[in-house]
Nucleic acid binder design. Structure first.
Lengths: 251, 251
DNA sequence: CGGCGCCTTGACTTGCATCAAAAGTAGTGG
DNA sequence: CCACTACTTTTGATGCAAGTCAAGGCGCCG
C-alpha cells in the first residue's frame, strides 16, 4: 500500500534524530527571531523520547512540572479533573504546538496530557530553557508570547462556551483544526479529526449526541462531508458565517 | 459619618504616593522571593496614575500593549468583543491582582479593561519589566508564574462554563470573591459584589434573570443574605458543597 | 463469529433563555 | 426637596435548544 504524502511527512517528523534546525515545524514551534546558532543551543537541551501510543500519558495531573512539550507528530489532548470526578478537555495539540504550560504557576501540572494517536513529542526542560534565556535575548520574549497565546486561545474558548450555540461551537472547532492544518501546509478543506466525538463534545461543552447530530446536519446542509473522522469542508464560506470567526484563527 | 475599616484601607491604597515596599498588597502582587532592593527597583519603574472613575477604560482592545496593571483599589473588569458584536466578560480584578497580560502574545490588547467603580492602578511598563528581569533572577520566574496563574484561572472558568449548571456557577463565583477577599484579610463571609448582575451573568454564561433568580433562591435556602450588592454568606459549607470547590481557590 | 467501542438516530424531558412587566434605585436638574 | 428619567433588579409565564434515555448500526480485533 503506497504512502500518502501526509504519512510521509508524519514519518519524517517522528524520526527521533531530526534536529530543530532541520525540523519542518520549527517556524511554528520556535521563534522566527532566533539566530541559527541560538536555535542550535535550544536544540541541545531538547530531549526526544520514543513515540507515545494512543492513550499513553505524557504527564499526569499532580506530576511535578519540569518541562514543556512540543508535539512533533500525532495529537495530544489535555484534561483537567474536577474534584467531583468530572473531566474537562482543555486543549488539543497538533504538530508544532506547545503544551504543558499549566504547571508554570505552581510547579505542578494541573492537567493530564494524553496521546490521541501514536505521537512523538520533544521535551523541553523548563529550567534549562529559563537559563538559556539569560543568553538568548529573544527567548524569554518568545516564552511570554507562547503563554500569551495560550491565554488568548483560552479566552476564545471561554467566549465560545459562554455565548455560542451548538452549531457555532462545532463550526468554530472545525475551522480551528482547518486553519491549524493550513499553518502546516496541509489541506484546510480535507483532514482527519484526531479526536473522538466524545472528546470533541467534552471540549465544546456539548454531549456526544449533540455533536453527532450537528455534524449530520452540517452534512445535510452541504457544509461538510463527514465520513467517520475524515472531514471535507465543502462550503468554507458558509461555515465561516456560521462560526463567529476571529475565534481560533491563530490558535 | 465615621469611616469603616474597609474605607480606611481603601483610602490607604488609593494614595498615589505609597511605594511597593510600603504597599499592603505587595505580598499578593509582588513575588515573595524578591529582595528588598529588588522591590525598590521594580518600584522605580511603576507609574501611578490618578484614579479611574466608574466606567473609565484602562485600555481598549486593539490598543498597543505596553504595560500590565496592578489594581491598587477598586475593581476592574476585562471584556473581549466578538466580531458579531457580543461581549464576553473575561475577568474581574480585585486589589493586588494583575491584569493586561492579554496582549503579550501579539503586542496588542485583545481585551478592553473597564473600572467597575472608582479604582486606582499601578502601571508596570512591560519592556522595562523585561529588562529588569535580566538583573533580577526571580523576576522572569515571577512573570511566568503570573501568566501561568492566568492560564489556570481561565481553565477553571472553562470547566465551569462547560460542565456546571447555574447554581454551581453562581456559588463558585461567590466563593471566588470570598476567598480573594480572604487573601486581603477582609471578611470571607460578608462583602460587596463590585459588579452588576449583568456583568456577573455575562462572565458566567448566564442571563441576568437567571443570576437574580439563583441568588434569590440561595437566600430562601438560607445560604446567603443578599441586599443588593451586599452579600453575607450564612452557610459557607453548604455553598461549598454546591460549588465544585477546588475551582478558584487561589484565583 | 461474538464482543466491545464508537457513532448515529429517535423520542422525551428539562434547565435556562426569552419575553414581559413591575418595583426598586440612582442620578439630574429645577 | 421633589419630580423626572433612566437604569438595574426582581418575578412571572412561556418556549426551545440541548440534555437524557434508549436502541440500533458499524467497524475492529481477538
Amino acid at each position: 500500500m503506497p504512502k500518502t504524502p501526509l504519512q510521509l511527512i508524519q514519518r519524517c517528523h517522528s524520526t527521533p534524530t531530526v534536529s530543530c534546525s532541520q525540523c519542518r515545524l520549527a517556524s511554528i514551534c520556535l521563534p522566527i527571531s532566533l539566530h541559527v546558532e541560538d536555535v542550535d543551543r535550544v536544540d541541545s537541551i531538547i530531549q526526544r523520547g520514543r513515540p507515545l501510543q494512543k492513550g499513553d500519558y505524557l504527564y499526569h495531573a499532580q506530576d511535578k512540572f519540569h518541562a514543556v512539550y512540543a508535539v512533533r507528530s500525532g495529537t495530544v489532548k489535555t484534561i483537567a479533573s474536577t474534584n467531583d470526578g468530572k473531566e474537562q478537555v482543555t486543549g488539543f495539540y497538533l504538530p508544532g504546538e506547545i503544551l504543558g504550560l499549566d504547571g508554570v504557576a505552581t510547579n505542578v501540572h494541573t492537567n493530564s496530557a494524553i496521546a490521541l494517536e501514536t505521537s512523538a513529542v520533544c521535551e523541553i526542560p523548563f529550567d534549562k530553557l529559563d537559563e538559556l534565556g539569560a543568553h538568548i535575548p529573544n527567548l524569554h520574549r518568545h516564552m511570554f508570547r507562547l503563554m500569551g497565546r495560550e491565554i488568548g486561545t483560552e479566552q476564545q474558548l471561554i467566549t465560545l462556551l459562554s455565548k455560542s450555540n451548538a452549531d457555532e461551537r462545532v463550526a468554530t472547532l472545525l475551522l480551528s483544526i482547518s486553519s491549524r492544518n493550513g499553518r502546516r501546509n496541509l489541506s484546510v478543506t480535507s483532514f482527519r479529526l484526531p479526536m473522538s466525538r466524545a472528546d470533541l463534545g467534552n471540549y465544546l461543552g456539548l454531549t456526544v449526541e449533540t455533536v453527532s447530530r450537528t455534524l449530520s446536519r452540517f452534512q445535510k446542509q452541504g457544509l461538510i462531508e463527514a465520513d467517520k473522522k475524515e472531514i471535507t469542508i465543502t462550503n468554507l464560506d458558509a461555515l465561516r458565517k456560521l462560526a463567529d470567526i476571529s475565534l481560533f484563527d491563530c490558535a
